[in-house]
């Protein structure tokens, strides 16, 4: 794509906020950081329409009569954010053809949580991507249904305790592995797909800018820590977010639909070149109450190792996709 953009903190901090203070997301929630970075990455955020699936972000930013959104915004339902975005995009296209809308068509940005994306909204998302609507779908992935009280989703990682996958005498939290949503979306072959981490904000905004520049649908998968659901002190949010990438649990990559190439980016590219710097998953797991049962009352090396092995297997798969390992 274009010449490499290296955003500076000044450049990002200077841009106005389009999600405002006074929202009622929990202290330390990463979702507003995901939103903020996404909108600051756009070259013309004034010409943007936002679509939000049902979820924490939607609820806590629009408790009537208040709204935290300084851009036109629509929440329709849980499972249909991508379909709603299709309609918004199509309407502006038609209004433009008819000469009713005279400017550039607005950028459509969708925010959906993991429930609305991996699970109930997957069909709507797949349909909208297949149809090739131009929108940027941002998944803020906090790995469970946090809005309803921490129930497991298709995104909840193996062994994580949630209120519907509790750690019991027989089951060690969620028995299934996380769904590889990024690859599923990339398999449509017409979407720009990228994983991002708000801690690695430069890599984040550069990818959103690429999504903006790509003439077609794009999908940004952001890990989004949840101190309530993951059970850690809010102060640790960004530290844990960083570890998600540093352990290769949430590696940073992108899929370019034009070349059909996978690229590993940012910190993950550094780790690909310096594998000794990969942090063991234990460092990430032990900070979070949802994995407490892996350490207490007895240490479950079997489970910790299973996670570590799986992460390395998936990391190797990604290295192969990106042509960094044969």
């Amino acid at each position: 794509m274009q010449k490499k953009w290296v955003p500076t903190p000044v450049e990002i901090a200077k841009k106005p906020d389009y999600i405002l203070s006074g929202h009622r997301l929990c202290a330390g929630c990463a979702a507003p950081v995901v939103v903020k970075l996404t909108l600051k990455a756009l070259p013309n955020p004034e010409n943007t329409v936002l679509v939000n699936a049902t979820g924490c972000l939607e609820v806590a930013t629009t408790i009537f009569p208040y709204t935290a959104w300084r851009r036109p915004w629509i929440h329709n339902a849980f499972e249909n954010a991508a379909a709603t975005a299709s309609g918004v995009e199509a309407a502006f296209k038609a209004l433009k053809k008819k000469g009713v809308w005279k400017d550039e068509e607005p950028t459509i940005v969708v925010f959906g949580g993991d429930g609305g994306t991996y699970d109930i909204g997957l069909q709507s998302l797949s349909g909208a991507i297949e149809r090739g609507h131009k929108f940027i779908y941002v998944l803020y992935d906090n790995e469970a249904y946090m809005n309803t009280g921490i129930q497991r989703s298709g995104s909840t990682p193996f062994a994580a305790a949630t209120t519907t996958s509790p750690a019991g005498k027989v089951l060690p939290g969620k028995p299934e592995w996380k769904k590889p949503i990024g690859f599923i979306v990339a398999a449509h072959m017409n979407a720009y797909v990228a994983t991002v981490n708000p801690f690695y904000w430069q890599d984040f905004v550069v990818k959103v800018r690429k999504a903006f520049e790509y003439d077609g649908p794009s999908f940004i998968h952001a890990i989004s820590t949840c101190d309530r659901g993951w059970r850690f002190e809010p102060v640790l949010a960004m530290r844990i977010s960083k570890l998600a990438t540093d352990t290769c649990l949430h590696p940073l990559w992108e899929f370019d639909p034009e070349t059909r190439e996978y690229h590993i980016t940012g910190q993950s590219l550094y780790l690909a070149k310096n594998p000794d710097k990969i942090v063991p998953v234990e460092e990430y797991l032990k900070l979070q109450g949802r994995f407490r049962h892996l350490f207490k009352p007895v240490r479950r090396d079997d489970l910790i190792n299973a996670i570590q092995n799986r992460v390395m297997k998936e990391w190797k798969y990604l290295l192969k996709l990106a042509g960094l390992e044969s």
Binding site: A83, A91, S124
Partner: peptide
């Protein structure tokens, strides 16, 4: 003409389109 993948999405897209002013 948006050839959606379900009626649920048909109505959802209509909501988006009408909210956009169309």
């Amino acid at each position: 003409f948006v050839s959606v993948e379900s009626e649920h999405s048909a109505m959802s897209a209509c909501v988006g389109a009408a909210a956009a002013g169309g």
